[in-house]
Simulated scan of single mutants.
Amino acid sequence: MNLKQLSDMLALSQTTVSRALNGYPEVSEETRRRVADAAKRHGYRPNPSARRLATGKAGMIGYVMPTGAAVDIDPHFVEFLSGLGDYARGHELDLVLSPADADEEETTYRRVVANKQVDAVYVSSPRPADRRVSLLNQLGIPFIVHGRSEGLDFDYAFLDIDNEAAFHDAARLLVQLGHTRVALINGDLGETFAILRERGARRALAASGLALAPERMRSAAMTEENGFRAATSLLQGDAPPTAILCSSLIMALGVVRAIRDLGLSIPGDVSVIAHDDVFPWLKPENFSVPLTTTRSSIRAAGQRIAERLAAKISGLESDPRGEVWPVDLVVRGSIAGAKS
């Protein structure tokens, strides 16, 4: 079915149908739903070239994806991408991935924008004063950041979870349980989320006159092996921690393995709290001891970012608005009072 046939069937102009499919604000929600339902029912998909000619829009969301020998496939990214795809699939949007070495990201962004390949882009894993965010702001393309970049002198659109409050609340709970030797196994401290998580834990400990000692901190890519190595070194050191805060469930797999291999128990010897991005294939309640977690769905974040990018493309959202989601603290069996 082509656009004319779909328009004739709905008794609407081709312009109205095209605008409804591309999210233009002047089309009513009722008409938009009617057109979308008919398009889905009859298998209609707009021709990309025709859509660009008719609307000036490509119907594409862009992402510059870091590649190279030092870049691993991150399960967090895959889950986020699944959420973004869930929304894009139902709203006639496609995703364009542009691979780039770490030192060529800015060049790739310039090329993508200059070639008008995409209508909007998103940025992930932001760092303080992130040059990618500054560049996109200068280039004038609609964009949104998954996370936040501190140290910029302009407002920009972002979606983030409240990492600082999440790890503040988790550390405070451990202090309330009598733990004075709390360790933090964090993600890459070059990224803002990890900085905020450390800040939250420090603030909670300081409120009780405690400190997050340097010897009780580890930072690395969030893999199972890094979690194992970090926990092993912490627990074999002098005055080992009685509680560990961990920045991901994937790292927590290694933490639990290290505790078991050292002949220790959870929570008898070590209490553990991890961050849970709500993976369907890795659930905290299915650990040998159900894990207490700070919880926020990264898949839902992907869906929301796609929704906001679609709104930016259609003109429904134009302000550089930040959005911060609260994080749940879910208490399970992996924490207990500190041994006296």
Rank of each mutant, 00 (worst) to 15 (best):
R321G: 08
P99M: 09
G254S: 04
R304E: 15
T293K: 02
V64A: 07
R229D: 14
L212D: 06
H146C: 14
F154W: 05
E215D: 13
N137H: 15
A171E: 02
V255K: 00
V121T: 13
A300S: 14
F279L: 11
R34C: 09
T293Q: 02
D269L: 05
G59S: 04
S7Y: 08
E307Y: 14
A201P: 05
K57T: 12
T223S: 14
V118C: 08
E225G: 02
L262D: 01
E30I: 12
L10R: 07
T242P: 03
L205Q: 04
G90R: 10
R295G: 03
G59A: 06
G237D: 13
S7R: 00
A157T: 05
V289Q: 08
T16W: 09
L10E: 08
L97S: 06
N2P: 01
D74E: 12
Y87D: 02
G56I: 10
S28K: 06
L139H: 01
D277G: 09
G178E: 00
V175W: 04
I273M: 05
L10Q: 03
W325T: 13
T292R: 04
K283I: 14
D101S: 14
W281N: 14
E150I: 12
G59I: 04
L189C: 10
S98I: 05
K116H: 15
S219K: 06
A170N: 06
I313K: 10
L135S: 05
V272A: 04
L139M: 06
R299A: 03
T242S: 03
L21P: 02
A258T: 08
A213G: 02
W281V: 11
D277V: 11
G254Y: 06
T180A: 04
R308C: 09
R89P: 04
G227C: 09
V64P: 05
A213N: 03
L249A: 07
F158R: 09
V78F: 03
R181F: 02
N115T: 14
A157H: 06
E323R: 10
G147E: 11
H76E: 15
P290C: 07
D155G: 05
T107W: 11
G237L: 04
D86T: 13
L282K: 07
G43H: 05
V145F: 06
T232W: 10
L184Y: 11
G187F: 11
F143M: 12
A300V: 13
N115D: 15
A243C: 00
D188E: 09
T292E: 05
G209Q: 10
L159V: 12
L291Y: 07
A220C: 04
I244W: 01
L12F: 05
L245I: 08
A70C: 01
D238F: 03
F279Q: 02
E92G: 15
S208E: 14
A239W: 04
A157S: 11
T242N: 01
V255S: 10
N186A: 15
R197S: 12
L245K: 01
E307R: 15
A252S: 10
A206G: 10
I161L: 13
V270Q: 06
H179G: 02
E225M: 10
Y63M: 07
A170M: 03
N137S: 14
R148G: 11
M9K: 14
R181N: 09
S233A: 13
V78Q: 05
R33S: 09
A274P: 08
R304A: 15
D94T: 13
A50M: 09
A300Y: 13
R110L: 08
Q14K: 12
G254P: 05
G200M: 11
R257E: 15
G337L: 04
